[in-house]
Nucleic acid binder design. Structure first.
Length: 297
DNA sequence: CGGTACGCCTGAAGGC
DNA sequence: TGCCTTCAGGCGTACC
């Protein structure tokens, strides 16, 4: 039996990866004075009102928090925001391959390819540069004049954060949609933060077939699903998220959760629970792996 | 409402 | 060995 497939671990940073990133960045940049910003690729930064095809409004250094202080880091779902002392806010989405790295003064990045924005900071642990790097450019930076505007215009369309979600809330969210449970879990406007890896993992853990129509799930099965979701997400947050080649934390370290994946990336391999061969299917245009024996509709 | 498809983008991996 | 093709993924959007 092969130990593992040639797991093409190239998946997006989901909630646990972003939460771990937030925790690793906080001691380095919370309270930091932003001394200088350099936007290398203007199309990676967005402002409300800017739409592709229209005239491009240049994002100014001030909008990237130049001259002010980073007071707080806030995560919602897969998105991370810096709240500044002057009231402004910037929000990051890492897409598939986004990285935020803090480089203490004197250290260099192995490659500066695909570095789109650089902030020079005087932080609580000393000076350094914060870099945003995103080879695939599915991610981006959104600039807001106020924190209220970020929440009103960008985060209001997201569902409640998946971490510490109450089971009874999940019951309510799933009750009025006929879509498959996997599709619903991936919909950020329903629940914020669940991506393909953790959707498959928590459905396996809860014994629920991914194609089950959401509204047919009993209250007790949804409560069980939520317990699985909370356990898997919180454990992954502590471990630093999945080991995904493209994900690294603020210090450049990758996560260590991959060895705990029971279904993700294991289609065609034996189920860890019953040893039957795990099946793969496409659901919501995404690779889905499940055990036909352990997971029921 | 839900489902299906596409484009965006790069690098890993597989075939030859 | 190196070139070429395929594929993965979130998310916005279009269309049935």
């Amino acid at each position: 039996m092969p130990a593992c497939t040639s797991d093409r671990e190239n998946k997006l940073p989901e909630l646990p990866e972003i939460e771990h990133l937030k925790r690793s960045l906080e001691p380095l940049i919370r309270g930091a004075h932003v001394l200088k910003t350099r936007l290398q690729r203007s199309d990676i930064a967005h402002q409300p009102g800017w739409q592709s095809g229209q005239e491009i409004r240049r994002v100014s250094p001030g909008e990237l928090l130049n001259g002010t202080y980073i007071d707080r880091l806030v995560r919602h779902g897969k998105q991370l925001a810096f709240m500044a002392r002057n009231g402004k806010a910037i929000c990051f989405h890492m897409g598939m391959s986004g990285q935020l790295r803090f480089l203490p003064r004197g250290t260099r990045l192995a490659t500066s390819r695909h570095v789109h924005c650089v902030w020079s900071l005087r932080g609580p642990k000393g000076e350094g540069r914060l870099i945003f790097r995103d080879p695939r450019r599915f991610g981006g930076i959104w600039c807001f004049d106020s924190q209220e505007e970020l929440i009103r215009t960008r985060w209001s369309s997201l569902g409640p954060d998946a971490l510490n979600l109450q089971g009874s809330v999940l019951v309510k969210l799933l009750s009025n949609t006929r879509r498959s449970i996997k599709t619903t879990l991936l919909d950020q406007t329903v629940i914020a933060g669940v991506g393909n890896i953790y959707a498959d993992e928590c459905l396996f853990s809860a014994g629920i077939h991914p194609a089950t129509p959401s509204h047919t799930l009993s209250r007790s099965r949804i409560m069980k699903l939520n317990r699985s979701l909370q356990r898997i997400l919180s454990r992954a947050c502590e471990k630093g998220g999945s080991t995904i080649r493209s994900y690294v934390d603020a210090n450049g370290r990758s996560g260590s959760y991959a060895d705990r994946h029971l279904v993700y990336g294991r289609a065609g391999l034996p189920c860890m629970r019953c040893e039957r061969i795990l099946l793969g299917m496409m659901l919501a245009q995404r690779t889905t792996v499940f055990c036909d024996s352990c997971q029921k509709k």
